[in-house]
Design a protein around this nucleic acid. Sequence first.
RNA 1: GAGGGUGUAGCUCAGCUGGUAGAGCGGGGGACUGUGGAUCCCCAUGUCGCGGGUUCGAGUCCCGUCACCCUCCCCA
Length: 405
Amino acid sequence: MSKEFQAPRGFHDILGSDLRKFRRITSTVRDILKRYNYEEIITPVVEFAEVFERSIGETTDIVQKEMFVFTDRKGRRLALRPEGTAGVVRAYIQNRLYTQKPYHKLFYEGPMFRYERPQAGRYRQFHQIGVEVFGVAEPHADAELLKLADDILKALNVRATLEINSLGCRVCRPAYREALVEYLNRVSDQLCKVCVDRKDRNPLRVLDCKVETCKEAVKEATKMVDFLCEECREHYEKVKAYLTNLGVSFRENHNLVRGLDYYTRTVFEAVSEELDVAVVAGGRYDYLVEEFGGPPTPALGFAVGVERLMLLVEEPERDYELYFVIPFGDVHAYALKVVDVLRKKGKVVELSYRKGGLRKQLELANRLSADYAVIVGEEEMKEGVVSLKDMRTGEQRKVKPEEID
RNA sequence: GAGGGUGUAGCUCAGCUGGUAGAGCGGGGGACUGUGGAUCCCCAUGUCGCGGGUUCGAGUCCCGUCACCCUCCCCA
């Protein structure tokens, strides 16, 4: 007797009804992305750790405590990707995509890894589908992106509120940051210890703290929106106007900051009304491509959390009829033929491997919720027919397999 | 990283104040050898997550450990 293995903590198998939900989500998203004409890209699960450190931010929690980092045999520091954008940006530059078209719309799907404590809808390996748009600075791109997120949520029947904010740019954010730190210093005795520590390192995050006293302390804080430079303000106003015009409902949340450093201007989250977790999140990152050594290229995108959506989505109904073929007696040669004929007609067919009498076979057909039982006995074989039984009504008739439709 | 809960047959769980384990479902077999969707009957030797301790004796108490769930943190 050898020991039984378990998947490592936070890693799990996806199967059965969960997998049907998983597929429903990914295929729905892919379907919509097709209509938006996004192009797929597959990037490696492993990158140099620096790719994430430099993009997401050295001081962020993701990088500091949640990344799976390891060294390979030559001592290179590699990491399992904790999110999708960094790798796509790297690929965009490495493949010189900017020389091919004036702008690009890419999407990716795959596993991401974060060393976190598992919880409902949160695993160490989880899956995201994300989109990235490169080379468009104008606000209509932001609006279309938000519309895309909205379309996805509506298609999946997930009730979520779209929250948006603007984080400004190089021009206006430094001044705001300064003003915010000044404000936070004044109320620092009301902040939780994490925030006291955080206010100098990453002050914007304090706005997003969930601790009640912090929320209270931050209520009167100066808002980024009040500091936006003329261009950022105009951009933000246009995004909102376009959304209103499109009929996409949203709520402004001036404390929404996101935990990744690369965001500029528009940021957003779709928060489930049912569970109070973000299921879609993203925003603009106009400097990241440049910071990665590419040409200055405005960009924006978002990611959909598949496991989180799985908590909110119904398992899809089966959309085909199942024919359960029951060989009965020494008829396997004939039964195999029957199965082949039905499959050629496009039917979904399961050939029963179960042993036992007709009764047991029909019980199994029932349990598999087959729509039809196709009984193939010696009698049927002699006549070149099958007995087709409608499992719902119980009606049964003999037909030639070719005539089933 | 912090706090709380749980861990008993394949699954869902019951096992009171410690005396060495049960039910439902599923699965398998069968009076019926060609007919189902609550006909009947039979079938569970499971290291009670793992390791250690207390005790004459532990699933039942204590410690540790692992996993899962929940909250915080963080995030999709």
